[in-house]
Design a protein around this nucleic acid. Sequence first.
DNA 1: GCTTTGTATTTTGTCAACAATTTGCGATTC
DNA 2: GAATCGCAAATTGTTGACAAAATACAAAGC
Lengths: 219, 219
Amino acid sequence: MAEFTFKQQANTSLREKVTHDLREAILNGHLLPGARIKEMEIAEQMGVSRGPIREAIRQLEREGLLLSYPYKETVVADLDADEVQNILMPIRFHIEWFVVKRYLDKLDDGFFGKQQAIIDEMKAAVANGAKSRLVDLDILFHQSILEMASERTVMLTWQSIVNQIRLHFSKNLPFYNLDHMEKDHQELLDAFKTKDLVLIQQAILKHLDSDDNLLCFAK
Amino acid sequence: MAEFTFKQQANTSLREKVTHDLREAILNGHLLPGARIKEMEIAEQMGVSRGPIREAIRQLEREGLLLSYPYKETVVADLDADEVQNILMPIRFHIEWFVVKRYLDKLDDGFFGKQQAIIDEMKAAVANGAKSRLVDLDILFHQSILEMASERTVMLTWQSIVNQIRLHFSKNLPFYNLDHMEKDHQELLDAFKTKDLVLIQQAILKHLDSDDNLLCFAK
DNA sequence: GCTTTGTATTTTGTCAACAATTTGCGATTC
DNA sequence: GAATCGCAAATTGTTGACAAAATACAAAGC
């Protein structure tokens, strides 16, 4: 039996907690696109000084969630559905394909089990109408693929797009037909299980397309 | 004739100047990968306080040039040539293709003239052996394509990869055969001039490949 | 000699005050 | 009454001081 060890302490700085809370507020729709971010207001509400707030703003600006105009104001960004579909989603597809191709040998039963558990929870979430949980599960499914690689550039690229994708889906959830969700991801997972790169590529491409088609107002 | 107007004042904050100078120091190789960034040291050298330095660090972290470990240190990132070639360059290709496809009507003589001027300067730079200028010109050529769109997501994505690409090329310049440079870009521009999307796509794909093949140690 | 412990130093993280800039608004002028 | 000006308030930008954490290193114990 493995010897007992303590878990690593979190050791998160205030800045990271602020970034996290501010990000969640945006993703959960408590701060809507166009809403002005006043540093002092948020600092008081959180009970911290403006320093960590400002650093968080710089980070979220890069994540595409905030727009900052020097000396003027910073506001919550608005996303263009078309840009998300035609720029960010294909980038996600691309890095996913890169990782799967390169780390094919890491596609083991442990991985498949984890993915299957996510899909099963999707099924439950669809049944319960737990829509926001579905968005999280979708992100989780795709992120866990990328985490196999744990390559810096992969994760950095992912982080620079993931929250825009998440916000887009949260915002447009009413326009999506969620019933497909479980089936689409199951097909993707089944393709992974074959370990056949041709089949996997086809499945990823199809997954991308299916997302596209679900968007009612797609151009 | 157009009426005379004054140019917009720069109105750059200290934070932005610090970010710029720090970025240039990294791109010009004055701060090598692994080098530790000490906030106080840089603040003293620049004659500013640590606030703007810290905000610049947050930004450059997101640009992939710095790595920050909370409560410990931040160091200059090292880039994996393979990741740049297989992740970042295809992303560049992708957003370029997206922009050209969508803004085909903006491909006018003014645009072609600007691009031709860049290529002409490439020719001169190759002749003079002005290598670092060549890297700038390559970036400039591709950036001016994206600037046609002035779409937020396009520019944000570009900014999150451009400096990694620039650093990669600066670093690996000795391994590239620069003679191709002018010819490759001329082919791309000629394809744009046809306004034929099939030809343009072929040219972009070929351009991506040619970059790939120039890399002597490519896997 | 090697490990462990305590301590000084260095460095990062946070804060609260101050400066610079923008914005809102009322007074003034034509 | 519309435009301009000047001032006050609000907000962002910057700073220097203080707090917390990590590191380096010497001393103590085995």
